[in-house]
Design a protein around this nucleic acid. Sequence first.
DNA 1: GCGACAG
DNA 2: ATCTTGTCGC
Length: 228
Amino acid sequence: MTTVRTPADWPVTEEEARAVQDALRARVVLDEPGPPPGTGHVTGVDVAYDDERDVVAAAAVVLDAASLDVVAEATAVGRISFPYVPGLLAFREIPTVLAALAALPCEPGLVVCDGYGLAHPRRFGLASHLGVLTGLPTIGVAKNPFTFTHDEPDTPRGSTAPLLAGREEVGRALRTRDGVKPVFVSVGHRVSLDNACAHTLALAPAYRLPETTRRADALCRRALGEVS
DNA sequence: GCGACAG
DNA sequence: ATCTTGTCGC
């Protein structure tokens, strides 16, 4: 497991962080379909915190997209680099996530984030931010609709409903299990929304959440427990 | 101005 | 995110 330090130029105030988002947003690529589902590698990233001890642990878990078998894992720990502020989640998670990704022995392929990409107050959530910094194709799969609205998708697995910011579709509510609360998918970088939903469905054959996030969640919790 | 709000 | 046991159901 690698240890990271918060970058010296990391934003300190909310105003600075929002300025970074406004500056980087233009670098998001939205006109690529992204890798086809079921091929190559798919990597889940997630982060766990111990605010008391000021520790954050990140995990990156690479799966074979066809079999969903684990191909590789890496973890990183560091100090909490930003407080939790809705809309600024990326500044809390990214330094440690980047370190975990860098520690992988193989290519990550598509990266699945726990949170949002385009579905964000300034259209630049965690998944978009991570995509721009790494150049990798990324998507966001969140457990809650944040501030956005949506109609209820139909009952069967695979049903979707637009996730709306006013009249703009910023993502999709996607049901991954019959009759169970949907997950909220949005584009990060270099992946289309249709493809992001197809990947999410392929990664969630048995549980509500994609295997990528389930594996990454379990690993970062374990890593946090080993240090604090 | 107040509350809500990914993790 | 995190604090937290048992419990209902397939």
